[in-house]
């Protein structure tokens, strides 16, 4: 089922990257303000779902960085890995570490908690995105 709504398609082409950028913004601000990996992941899922509605499921799936299951698995793996640096300092697993990277005048606060949140983001995008696309495909198959 390929929608012929030309206007929506043109609109969607530019909206999709904007939605993903917005989700990244929500992901990064989540440490100190409302937001974070889970909500940002849901926004990314919404972008994928909207793309699949305007175009079709196959092309929306192609726009995911990885296949849904791999995306989810690599997300959880990233979250697990984010707990390991603490072990080097003799701290318990998942103790998060904070620091600042300085590039000339720019100071960038970084933490292992950010990696964890990125893992949550990828996992939510993979699981719910895959689930959403599978549901949409079952609608597409209805003649």
């Amino acid at each position: 089922m390929r929608s012929d709504a030309l206007l929506a398609q043109v609109f969607m082409r530019s909206l999709y990257p904007l939605l993903l950028l917005a989700s990244l913004w929500i992901l990064l601000r989540g440490h100190n303000a409302p937001g974070g990996g889970f909500i940002a992941g849901l926004l990314a899922v919404a972008a994928s779902a909207a793309y699949a509605l305007v175009f079709d499921v196959a092309s929306s799936r192609r726009r995911l960085p990885l296949a849904p299951v791999s995306l989810a698995a690599s997300g959880v793996l990233l979250a697990l890995l984010s707990g390991l640096p603490a072990l080097l300092g003799g701290l318990p697993f998942l103790t998060h570490l904070w620091g600042t990277l300085t590039f000339g005048p720019v100071e960038l606060p970084v933490s292992t908690g950010m990696l964890f949140d990125l893992g949550v983001y990828l996992c939510v995008w993979g699981v719910f995105g895959g689930y959403c696309l599978a549901l949409l495909r079952s609608i597409e198959e209805i003649p």
């Binding site: 299951v69 791999s70 989810a72 698995a73 690599s74 959880v76 793996l77 697990l80």
Partner: peptide, 8 residues
């Protein structure tokens, strides 16, 4: 971790 790597 094994389960995740197996899934990948």
């Amino acid at each position: 971790a094994t389960a995740l790597l197996c899934a990948l």
